[in-house]
Amino acid sequence: MIDQASTYAADIDNIIIWVAVLAGFWFFVAEGVFFWLILKYRAKPGVKAQYLEGHENHVKKWVTWPHVGILAFDFVIIVMAIMVWYDVKQQLPEPDRTIRVIGQQWAWTFQHPGQDNQLDTDDDIFTVDELHVEVDQTYHFLLEATDVLHSFSIPVFRIKQDAIPGRTITGWFEATQTGEYDVQCAEICGIGHGVMAARVHIEDSDGHAAWVASAATAQ
């Protein structure tokens, strides 16, 4: 499995694992019963097949009990999913920084706050296909698209958020480890979709401050 580099990456992985386990449990139970019944009631000399309408309780229980069990497991999955969804998508923790992410065919433009730590000021730093963030800091991202649908995806963060022309969508993340990882577009956006790739550089406090200073000088 790829790195888990955000605060909620493990939560999302856990729910995927639980869905696989719970759905997998019923898959193997159902297949086991299915093949057991085929074997048990296979054709035998002198035994005539019966047609069962399924009205009797002792027959219906083979459908009803698994149905109830699956509903119970579904309930568990839905509750877990809502909890993770709320944490990732519905709530917005107070940000340490805000960045703007703009998707266009076929590149990502990132607007970082400069040394004043405020977005939309004169010292903002614009980069193409290169996002710089500081580890252990909460970021809000303002996601926009200039032309068609895109999807802002950072696999190690477990972020995947559609970008829609005409709308600004706010999301958040907090990186938990330093490193350099892929950013990709996860929504077919034209002939160059497959090469619409960028990198996120997660730096410690000193490293990020050094990058901001060097970028400010370059601009």
Partner: peptide, 19 residues
């Protein structure tokens, strides 16, 4: 070319050239 945030058509062309 095609690596500046204001050059939208260039941003489209660059990844195509990379292929």
């Amino acid at each position: 070319r095609g690596q500046h945030a204001d050059d939208i058509p260039g941003l489209r062309m660059r990844p195509m050239a990379v292929t």
